[in-house]
């Protein structure tokens, strides 16, 4: 019973939009759904910069973790990623160029207290509240998940990918690396593998829905898109709304598990439920 949310500002160039603040409100309004972990991915940097961040978890003591950050340019990023893929001790956190991922165990307000989410700006972002069902309560099992295959892919997920093992086996056979035991990671890796193959994000989502089994809704963000996708039977919730904006407040599309998250940020027009099995995608203007 995780809670997920996401938003895409109408004006994609508006780097000063209060994306962090809106996401934080949406997460806190759904806190009742899950309390084991919280995380966000916000797209807040320019694609022009040749700067990649590879973040990893480093265990400190029995239950504490620190985050190591390796800055790379396009020249040495492959080499640094290879080091991570080959190091079994490493708990991969994220691979970022335009986005910033922050995640931690505990409540959404604790995440804000630690990282100052409300002060973050950007063009779009996603958020997640986790309740642990199949894997342990650790920061590296917390959403959003990204991949070492391509930068700037982040997914948050509510539900179960029941054929996770089969999908993971076939992706590993294709040569893609996994870093956690979470079934959610398979969504990120699958999308990255298909973007690499044909570059069509909508097709990638459709292919995932065709292959994945189980009850799920996920929100996936790339540097220029955000999509909400429900399983083909629509067994998990998902809702979309639009806030037309005011003079002080820019307009945006919002999506979440619960209607309460749309209410709290005023995204109460053009309400719709995504059709089961059909990705609903919003592109950055």
């Amino acid at each position: 019973m995780c809670g997920i949310c996401g938003l895409m500002m109408d004006d994609g160039e508006l780097r000063h939009s209060p994306v962090g603040s809106i996401l934080q409100d949406m997460m806190e309004s759904q806190q009742v759904r899950a309390q084991d972990g919280a995380g966000i991915a916000i797209f807040n940097k320019s694609s022009a910069q040749d700067s990649f961040k590879i973040k990893n978890f480093r265990k400190e003591g029995i239950s504490n973790y620190a985050i190591d950050e390796v800055k790379s340019s396009s020249e040495n990023v492959s080499e640094n990623l290879q080091k991570i893929n080959q190091n079994p001790e490493c708990h991969f956190f994220s691979f970022e160029n335009e986005m910033t991922i922050l995640k931690e165990t505990g409540l959404a307000k604790d995440l804000d207290k630690k990282f100052g989410i409300r002060k973050m700006n950007g063009s779009h972002g996603i958020g997640h509240l986790r309740i642990a069902t199949s894997s342990r309560v650790t920061p590296y099992n917390t959403h959003p998940f990204s991949t070492t295959i391509l930068p700037d892919i982040a997914i948050v997920h509510n539900g179960e990918i029941t054929n996770y093992n089969l999908l993971r086996d076939s992706l590993e056979l294709e040569g893609f690396t996994f870093h956690t035991d979470s079934d959610s990671e398979v969504i990120a890796v699958f999308l990255a593998s298909r973007i690499l193959k044909h570059g069509d994000i909508e097709k990638a989502h459709r292919e995932f829905v065709a292959k994945a089994d189980g009850p799920f809704t996920y929100i996936a963000a790339t540097s220029d898109s955000i999509a909400i996708v429900r399983d083909k039977f629509g067994t998990r919730k998902g809702i979309i709304g639009y806030n037309p904006g005011t003079n002080d407040h820019p307009s945006f599309w919002a999506m979440a598990t619960d209607l309460s998250a749309l209410d709290v940020v005023g995204a109460t027009t053009k309400i719709e439920t995504p059709h089961p099995g059909k990705p609903r995608i919003f592109y950055r203007n």
Binding site: E160, T162, N163, L166, D213, G214
Partner: peptide, 9 residues
């Protein structure tokens, strides 16, 4: 919990 027979592993 599958909807497709071929998802068994």
């Amino acid at each position: 919990g599958y909807s497709d027979f071929h998802n068994l592993s």
